[in-house]
């Protein structure tokens, strides 16, 4: 049997995507585990939300397949709890009842999909693939922002000031007047900033400033 034992928590370093399954019904849990493994996904199964929270989540693309009715904490409550803790794992809800108000609530809170038992396996696999893709994308975005921030950290205080005004759309002359230096000095700072940030154009620098939130608003 190639199923990963639930106790193995040494998965944070591996890059493969993981599906987490939380369902109190053991046989459905096992069946879902088999289904996901058969398409080459790594699977971790849990009987309750508490069990999942007690384990260390790996830093890799993943998604959560969650039964909306769980003993103890309900699926919706668990979704809210994860959001509060800043864990942005995509969630696919499964339910035995075609419960429309509940599914609306879940989707509004950011669920990827809402499947009614018995679901079509392809629907489940598609939903999981989409969720993992979304997670991977989110992780990439996060990594890009982190890179930008690191570049930004290398700027001198004056360069950061220049970057804020330039990306706000001020002319070099105007920036010089604002910070009380010559236009030439502004030009030099601007050149250094572009280089350190790795921006090839002003438009790119503006987008970076936007992401970092350092763009001055015109006053």
């Amino acid at each position: 049997m190639t199923q990963h034992p639930p106790s193995s928590r040494d998965i944070s370093s591996t890059p493969d995507p993981i599906v987490f399954v939380v369902d109190d019904d053991a046989s459905l849990r096992e069946a879902l585990g088999r289904l996901f493994r058969s398409v080459g996904l790594r699977v971790e199964t849990f009987a309750s939300a508490t069990e999942l929270l007690q384990s260390k989540l790996p830093d890799t693309a993943s998604c959560l397949v969650l039964d909306i009715r769980l003993p103890g904490v309900s699926g919706l409550d668990f979704q809210a709890e994860l959001a509060k803790a800043g864990i942005h794992i995509p969630i696919i809800f499964i339910t035995g009842h075609g419960d429309i108000p509940m599914s609306v609530k879940a989707m509004k809170a950011g669920a990827v999909d809402f499947l009614t038992k018995p679901f079509r396996d392809q629907d489940m696999l598609d939903a999981v693939a989409m969720a993992i893709e979304r997670d991977r994308k989110r992780r990439e975005d996060e990594r890009a922002v982190a890179e930008l921030r690191a570049h930004f950290e290398t700027l001198s205080p004056r360069e950061r000031e220049v970057m804020g005004f330039v990306t706000a759309g001020l002319m070099n002359k105007q920036v010089a007047a604002e910070i009380g230096v010559s236009e030439i000095t502004v030009k030099i700072h601007r050149g250094h900033t572009m280089k350190k940030m790795g921006a090839k154009s002003l438009a790119e620098l503006v987008r970076m400033a936007e992401v970092l939130g350092v763009r001055r608003t015109k006053s």
């Binding site: 049997m1 088999r34 058969s38 038992k117 018995p118 396996d121």
Partner: peptide, 29 residues
Amino acid sequence: EVNQPLAAVGANADAALRWLAAQPPDLEE
């Protein structure tokens, strides 16, 4: 209560087909 095992049956059936279709097929799974 009935859907619960039916969902499991569906998932298991799909998994079995895939394990059998794999090269080489994983008979144990």
